[in-house]
Simulated scan of single mutants.
Amino acid sequence: MRKWSVFVLWIFAFLSCRQISKSIDETIDPVDSVADKQKLVSAASTTTSTTHSIVHREGENIGFLKDSVNLLRAEVLLKNLPQYTGKEIYVYSSVSFFDDGRIFIALQHPINPKYVDNYQYEKGKWTGPKPEQLSVKDDIKDRLVPLSLMKFVNVARVCRNYNEKALDIEGAKPVTHIYLSIWNNRVQWFPNSISGSRERYSIEFNNEGTLKSFKRE
């Protein structure tokens, strides 16, 4: 029985690694540093014991916003939800990422496009769906973006660029919550400003998380 259990765990780890490897190929962007790429590639060789370790650490203050591997893992698990198997996932309205490992996201219903469901990621697992109450005035189509165009690893780039600027501003603090809003089928990153004890700056990011503009207000 023990040998059979070990075999099943090995198969699970093997399939997970292959899936993560595929996601890495789809995720790596030219703007990533060599270190970032190596970190993502290393996720493909994750063992079962390492995976359990990741799950155990999530939910604590672990620097999730800059952790490309765990962000990628969260995206892979979202894509693996059975209701979305073989279907394009569309993100609705907004997504919130927290440094303690939590994610809040709204997705268009996989069958009825007029519906929206809420999901939460915490301690390495997705929970949901929970139905979103919509008004007849809500324009769902206007606030949708394909998940394939909104990769979770972009959060790590936003975090890195934000913190690099904040480091040079007296009194400014590192970011602990990053969220994006979707309007006219476009993504806008937040926070869009950095406040110090003496100065305040506006900051904007491109869709992939690279710095778009930075100026003092």
Rank of each mutant, 00 (worst) to 15 (best):
L134R: 03
R57K: 15
P110G: 07
L149S: 14
F214D: 03
G171D: 03
S33Q: 04
D36P: 06
N70T: 12
G59M: 02
E60T: 07
S213V: 06
S49V: 13
W183P: 12
R160A: 13
K37W: 11
Q19P: 07
V153F: 04
S213H: 12
Y92K: 07
H56D: 07
K130N: 15
K125E: 12
F190Q: 09
D117F: 09
D100K: 12
I89R: 04
S45R: 13
D36F: 03
K151S: 04
S53A: 13
P82F: 06
I103N: 04
I105W: 00
G128K: 00
F12M: 14
F190T: 04
W183K: 15
D32W: 06
I103R: 02
N163V: 03
G101L: 02
N118M: 14
Y84F: 12
R73C: 05
L77E: 12
E170Q: 11
K22Y: 13
L211V: 02
K165D: 01
K130F: 15
G209M: 00
S68F: 15
E199Q: 12
P129G: 09
F190E: 11
L149V: 07
S181F: 10
T210H: 02
S135A: 14
V69S: 10
I28K: 03
L211T: 03
K87W: 05
A43W: 02
K173I: 10
R200W: 07
V55D: 08
V41N: 06
D29E: 04
I20Y: 00
G196K: 01
Q83D: 09
Y119T: 05
M150W: 02
T85P: 01
V6G: 02
G209N: 05
Y121C: 01
L77K: 06
F104M: 14
T51P: 13
D32L: 07
